[in-house]
Design a protein around this nucleic acid. Structure first.
Lengths: 133, 133
DNA sequence: ATACGACCTATAGCAACTATAGGTTCAAGC
DNA sequence: GCTTGAACCTATAGTTGCTATAGGTCGTAT
């Protein structure tokens, strides 16, 4: 069974936009696939799997650069310890937690401003006051 | 007392980088200031105040486009109700909360993956598994 | 008078795509 | 076999909010 997909098929299968697939090819995240006689890209299961990997990693918030590292780690010979994968994921978790903390602090500030703004006029507005120093 | 500042002074006063000040001028967030005979920018207190406003709004996470709206609202004649400011800030708060929720869900996923990955080899790695589907 | 830091302009680069223009191919229906 | 129209192709520019670089000029302290 030879499975082959057009770029549109691949997009549908992976939930990835066609333009994004071409973009990934251009920046070397995806290998150049074969072409039809007319020049259309023809993909196989290996492209689908790799793109699925990329999309899932992106959904988990990894940068494309980190995705590159994860891809090459996942293609490492069997028996290679996954300590590097762990390290990357742990570091990412730390960053996610830092972002949450920053946003929570921001949330508190905004809540405070909106609480005390009694919906009056622009020259008495607490939100604008906070910005005007 | 005529206060005037160089672009470097203004940067120091507002915690804003010099290149960023020029960028704000270019995109119309800050008005073009006067110039010295040699062509150096000369700023006054009004520029300082406006830039302070911009920086504080950016720290609160408002986009530059929203900052534009906030600036024009803050320059509205006295007596104008600040309902629009409230609306903008409330909407922003909603977005901040949405981001927090998304990141928390991500945090949970990453924690789960790292928990069950018993630091083995790449072909058994739970983190890579999750990406491979 | 000179040195040197601060300033000037213009352009390109970053992440991770998205949008546009203008053209070609493929597949389905007649 | 032919036509139509969706899907494909390339190349380039735009998005956000800056930052970096190159190559030159100005201002001020000694």
């Amino acid at each position: 069974m030879q499975e082959s997909f057009s770029i549109g098929d691949l997009g549908r299968l992976t939930g990835c936009q066609v333009v994004t697939i071409r973009y990934y090819e251009k920046i070397g995240i995806l290998a150049e696939p074969g072409r039809s006689s007319g020049g259309h890209r023809i993909y196989g299961p290996e492209h689908r799997d790799r793109l699925t990997f990329v999309r899932k990693a992106r959904e988990l918030g990894f940068s494309l650069d980190t995705v590159r590292s994860l891809l090459s780690l996942s293609e490492t010979p069997e028996g290679t310890p996954c300590a590097d994968v762990d390290r990357i994921a742990s570091r990412h978790l730390v960053e996610v937690r830092e972002k949450i903390a920053a946003l929570k602090s921001l949330e508190g500030t905004l809540e405070g401003l909106l609480d005390i703004c009694s919906h009056t006029t622009v020259e008495q507005c607490r939100v604008l006051d906070a910005l005007r120093d």
